[in-house]
């Protein structure tokens, strides 16, 4: 029972981890908490539907188109909003992210309707029994996709100098530009990557939830995961996501399914009150 629960909770946790990574990347790079990030998750999934139903391409091609379009969206958000606002106050930039999210969400409501759309699974949602555990291929696909992305990001950030240069720019912009990093290009890359992560998360989570303009509320869980991980650590975001998935599943199973969705808010508040630096490590010193 417990083993089954942990396996199932990994699916949700993996998606939370992805969203948390997006939040942390954007925050580390640009200092902004992207309040419209959840709407980008929703928008990404809708992009697949739009490509399928209005462009008329098959599901796999629609996914490719959605991924490309979301990269363009990320670049556009950076160029149109974040560059002009680069010297604006933090509050102005936060409100801009909120506005971007609202615009995306309400555009979807206006043009795609307020109702839920069915969204295809990547693999069969019918459970298969393996050694006493019920495994759902569709869920395994989610975990698989997230693992591949995490491995790719890990290799890029830890093993390549280009990846380290991005982390360096997140830590110290002046220092990074002094070693030759074009900091504006780093921000562009971060917006593109985070937008891509949002769309992947949207595509993965849409069949589990239902795809409606308000699906982006799921991002509060990614946000909680990021807070659990300290909001500045990429590995912390991943661990936070997985942990939140497990805690949710345990709450749902042993306390009450009604509380399942509340638990992330409770955790969010508790962490902010008791341990604002996150569960892992001490307060990170940002500069030398």
């Amino acid at each position: 029972m417990l083993a089954q629960l942990l396996v199932s909770s990994l699916t949700a946790g993996a998606v939370y981890a992805l969203i948390a990574l997006g939040f942390v990347l954007l925050h580390n790079g640009t200092g902004v908490v992207h309040f419209g990030y959840g709407d980008q998750v929703t928008f990404g999934a809708y992009l697949v539907l739009i490509a399928q139903n209005f462009v008329g391409v098959p599901f796999s091609a629609a996914i490719m188109m959605a991924l490309l379009a979301s990269m363009a969206l990320g670049a556009a958000i950076y160029a149109v909003f974040m560059v002009p606002l680069r010297n604006a106050s933090l509050l102005a930039r936060l409100i801009a992210t909120l506005a971007i999210g609202t615009a995306l969400r309400e555009w979807l409501r206006a043009f795609m309707g307020p109702n839920a759309w069915p969204f295809p699974f990547l693999l069969s949602p019918a459970p298969v029994e393996v050694g006493g555990l019920m495994l759902v291929p569709a869920n395994l696909a989610i975990i698989g996709v997230v693992l591949v992305i995490l491995a790719g990001l890990y290799l890029f950030f830890e093993k390549t100098l280009q990846g380290k240069a991005i982390l360096a720019a997140c830590e110290n912009r002046t220092g990074a530009s002094l070693i030759g990093v074009r900091v504006s290009r780093v921000f562009l890359v971060i917006w593109v990557v985070a937008s891509l992560l949002a769309t992947v998360a949207g595509i993965l989570v849409a069949p589990l939830l239902t795809l409606s303009p308000d699906m982006g509320l799921i991002a509060i869980k990614g946000f909680t995961a990021a807070v659990l991980g300290g909001f500045s650590s990429l590995p912390g975001a991943v661990v936070g996501g997985l942990l939140l998935g497990v805690l949710e599943a345990l709450t749902g199973a042993y306390i009450s399914t009604a509380l399942k969705d509340m638990i992330s808010y409770a955790i969010l508040i508790a962490v902010i009150l008791v341990r604002p630096q996150g569960l892992f490590g001490g307060l990170a010193l940002k500069k030398v």
Binding site: L161, K164, A165, L167, A168, E171, N172, T174, G175, A176, L178, I179, G180, V181, A284, L285, K286, K287, V288
Partner: peptide, 20 residues
């Protein structure tokens, strides 16, 4: 102010110096 990458290792700081 030296502008080092304080969270990164000495080795990474040095290697990043050769980025270009």
């Amino acid at each position: 102010q030296r502008e080092l990458f304080g969270g990164m290792s000495v080795s990474d700081n040095l290697r990043l110096g050769g980025l270009l």
